[in-house]
Structures are given as C-alpha cells and as structure tokens.
Design a protein around this nucleic acid. Structure first.
Length: 423
RNA sequence: GGAGGGUUGGCUGAGUGGUCGAAAGCGCUUCACUGCUAACGAAGUAUGGGUUUAUAGCCCAUCAAGGGUUCGAAUCCCUUACCCUCCGCCA
C-alpha cells in the first residue's frame, strides 16, 4: 500500500513503477475517485460539525427551541445520509484500486518481463562435474529409499510425496542445522500459525492478486504459502518502541501452495510441491532506505553463508521489474546448481518492501522524538525443504550411488554418507 | 456443538440516550520543592484524517469490528471476531 498523498504527488513515478513491474492499474481513475472522496468527505464533515454544534445546544434549549432545532437537524441528517450513500461506492472502488498500486521498484532493478530477464550478480562455487553419469534427485532418492512418489500421489494426489528413512532424517538434520545457524545470528525462532485470516494476505501483498494460489478453509481462512504471512501479522495494529527494532524472526512452518497456473511445470520430483517446509528470515527495521538496504544485503548474505557452509554451488540473481511482486522494492533470488538439469534453480528469495506491507498491517513504531512511523519489512528464505534436497543430493552424489553428507550436517544427521539401507 | 457473561485510553476501571474523547486511580513526561533519593504539589500525557508556514489553533472520525435506530449512541438493536464460565467432545 502506498500513501494516497504520495501517489498524488508522484503520479508519474507510480506510473513508471507499474510499467516496470508490468502491472496494470488505472491510476487516472484512482485520482478521479480520490478527488470525489475528498470533495464528499469535506462536505460531510462540515455537516457533521453542524450536527455536533447543534446537538450541544439541544439539551439546554427550551421546549419550543428544542422542537425547531430537532426539525432542522432532521434535514441535516437527510443530507448527511445522502453524502454517506454517495461516498460508499467511491470508497469501495477507491480501496480496490489502492490495493492494486505497486510499490516503487529500486533504480537498480533491471528492466524485464519474467525470470528469464533476471540478471546474475555473482556466483559461488564450481558447477559440479562428475567422472560418471550423474543421476537426478528422483533416481537417487528412490534408489536410496529416501522418498516415495508413487504412494505420495496415491495418498495426496498430483505432486504428492513421502519422505522416508534418510530422506526424512536428512530433512530434520537440515532444519536443525539451519535453526542453530540462524539463531547464532540473533534471530528469534518462531513457529507461527498456518491457518490464518485473509487480512494477513492483504497485509503481505499476496492478496488480492494471488488468490488462486491459496488453499482455503470452509471458514474463509487460508493456509499460508510462507510463514512470512503469519510472522508479519504478529505485530499487526501495534506501535512498537524503537528499541524493539530491528526485530528478526526465524519462522518455521509448513507451506501450502496450490501452484495454480503451473500445472505443466516441474511435474516430477521435489522442485515444485503443494506442501513443503521452510525456515524464513523475517525482519522489521526502522523506516530508512539505508536500513532496508543494509538488512536486505545482510539476510541475503546469511543465506549465502549457509549455502556455502553446505558447499552447494549457487548464483545470485537480481530480479527484473516484471518478476517482482507488487509490494517488493527489490529482490534477489539465490539459485542452487542442479547438475542433472544443468542449470541453477531458485532456492531462496530475498526481498524488501519499505513500508508497503507495514502500511497494510498498520505496524508502526515510535521514534526518539515521539514521531510514529511505519516500520520497514524484509524477508528471505533461510532454507526450504525438501526443495534443497534436489541440489544437495545431486551435487554430492558419488559414483556408487551413495551421497556424501556435507560436514556441518554430519553432527545433526549422525553419519557422513547415505547408502542403500539394508532393509 | 449447547447455555450464559464480557470487550472502554499504556494499565486498572467508572460511565445504560445529550456540553463524554470519555471520571478516578496507576504508570509515564515536564516543572516546582529538597543536601541527595523518596513522598507531597503543579501541568501535561491516544490515533488517523482535513485546514494551515506550523509538532499553534480549528474541524471530522475513533469506547472490539461492521451495519441499524435516533435530531443526537460508549450507552439501544442486529451481525461478526475475540475473551471468560459451565456442559459436551477431544490429541
């Protein structure tokens, strides 16, 4: 959500932002509606002032005066009601349009339509080479009895899976390692709800435009596709002390995504599934662009450091305008090397929003001088599983079909190699 | 799932149709006082919007949220959310 005053004063900038993000929003219409809103509101407030003034006189007026005052106020009331009626449809459309207005992307965001146009900013590690024919994660995991896709689809349906044996154990090891790693960085661990009210999705910016991707309950709530939604909702409608900032959560939750519109993509394996688990870095910081940028680089670096500790080759891309979410100012994706596919696949997504989300959530803080400001918000994946298994297993596979476990995971996993179980 | 009772400012809590944006107390801020601290005393202490050079005034809104009744609603009615008590069910 942008401030309507800002939109009015920077209309060209907002138009450019929408164009860069390839988002269609009728800003002319919004301004026209806002003119109407202001005009009606002003009229309405004058009448209400009149009502309030006379209402103060009525109790002390004589019986005769009282009658005439009440009679005149009946007319004012009718006029007030007429204005209220007129305002209602204006506000409804005004709100709808306001929810469509995108956040202004940063100057450094490249032009482009889709993820095809994202630009590589750096790479880490060598693209893994093998002196044997490597297998993909599906073959590897199936052979090592780490996963069962057939029974997954039998029980869940399309994109269903079971993690089994070392597949489940390795996933737990990754969570536990990630927990330790990020807690050492000062993040507060959080296990948030995943069945949440719709307003939280409006808050993060997932609604109104991503409704198709949400699972709904029969009570009108939705399942979160990322713990960002419930972690951000935590401080909704609150005014924090500045001393509470920055607030950094490491939120762990299952994530539910309908993947509507991507039925043909990644139909096999663990890249794209309807439910998975993710540890997410969520940050609220003070309202300064510099702070936002500093934290953005920091939470990106955190995840890179984590990937480096695992030894997984990756690169970082800066997302182009067309691949940015409505509320995002700038976004980096970390993409891990997947040898069998011969390309990098997204494992992390790191973005900042300025006050786009906190305006919608009404999350503010009190500055030293008493000024109340909207905080800034950011988030980045810490680690998503089982997706991370794809690159992890494919990169560390051995000629004999076993998997070498990266050293930092060994204490959590309990052994340094995955081999075919004897039973 | 059934029955009943609640939701008021940072907190406790008064207020059942009219000078109520809201008593009182606590907390907090400032001032005064005191050798220092405490106590006592004085003043102040919400958020959003409009107007404005203005963090001065003035105006509008907000007593869980939304709608309604009324000239007028914290107060009456309806709906929703949440909290509490009892019964039922339950990991």
């Amino acid at each position: 959500m942008l401030d309507i005053k800002f939109i009015r004063e920077n209309l060209e900038l907002v138009e450019m932002a929408a164009a860069k993000k390839h988002i269609a929003v009728d800003l002319k219409r919004l301004i026209k509606l806002d003119d109407e809103r202001r005009e009606i509101t002003q009229r309405l407030e004058e009448k209400r002032a009149e009502q309030n003034k006379v209402s103060e006189q009525i109790p002390s007026a004589s019986a005769e005066e009282k009658q005439s005052l009440i009679a005149s106020m009946q007319e004012v009331k009718t006029a007030v009601q007429a204005d209220e009626e007129a305002l209602r449809p204006v506000m409804e459309e005004w709100r709808t349009l306001m929810l469509q207005v995108p956040q202004i992307p940063d100057m450094t965001v490249p032009e482009g339509e889709s993820d095809e146009d994202n630009e590589e900013v750096r790479t880490w590690g060598e693209q893994t080479t093998f002196d044997f024919e490597p297998k993909d994660h599906i073959e590897l995991m199936t052979a090592l009895k780490m996963v069962d896709f057939e029974r997954g689809t039998k029980v869940h349906g399309f994109r269903g899976y079971y993690l089994l044996g070392d597949g489940a154990r390795l996933t737990w090891a990754i969570w536990n390692y990630a927990n330790q790693f990020f807690m050492e960085k000062g993040f507060t661990p959080m296990i948030p709800p995943t069945i949440v009210r719709k307003e939280n999705f409006y808050g993060t910016g997932h609604l109104p435009n991503e409704a198709e991707d949400l699972y709904e309950t029969q009570d009108g709530d939705s399942l979160t596709g990322t713990s960002e939604v419930s972690a951000m909702g935590y401080y909704r409608d609150e005014i924090l002390d500045k001393a509470q900032l920055p607030t950094t959560f490491l939120a762990f939750s299952p994530c539910y995504r309908r993947e509507a519109g991507s039925h043909g993509k990644d139909t096999k394996g663990l890249i794209r599934v309807h439910e998975f688990y993710k540890l997410e870095q969520v940050v609220l910081c003070e309202a300064s662009h510099e702070e936002s940028v500093r934290w953005h680089e920091q939470i990106t670096a955190n995840s890179e450091e984590f990937m480096q500790s695992l030894g997984i080759p990756y690169h970082v891309v800066v997302n182009c305008g067309g691949d940015l979410g409505q509320g995002q100012v700038k976004k980096y994706d970390i993409e891990a090397w997947v040898p069998k596919e011969g390309k990098y696949r997204e494992t992390h997504s790191s973005s900042y929003f300025h006050d786009f989300q906190t305006r919608r959530f009404n999350i503010r803080y009190k500055d030293e001088d008493g000024t109340v400001r909207y905080a800034h918000s950011l988030n980045n994946t810490a680690i998503a599983a089982p997706r991370i298994l794809v690159s992890l297993l494919e990169n560390f596979q051995q000629a004999d079909g076993s998997i070498a476990i990266p050293a930092p995971l060994v204490p959590f996993f309990g052994k340094d190699r995955i081999e075919l179980p004897t039973r």
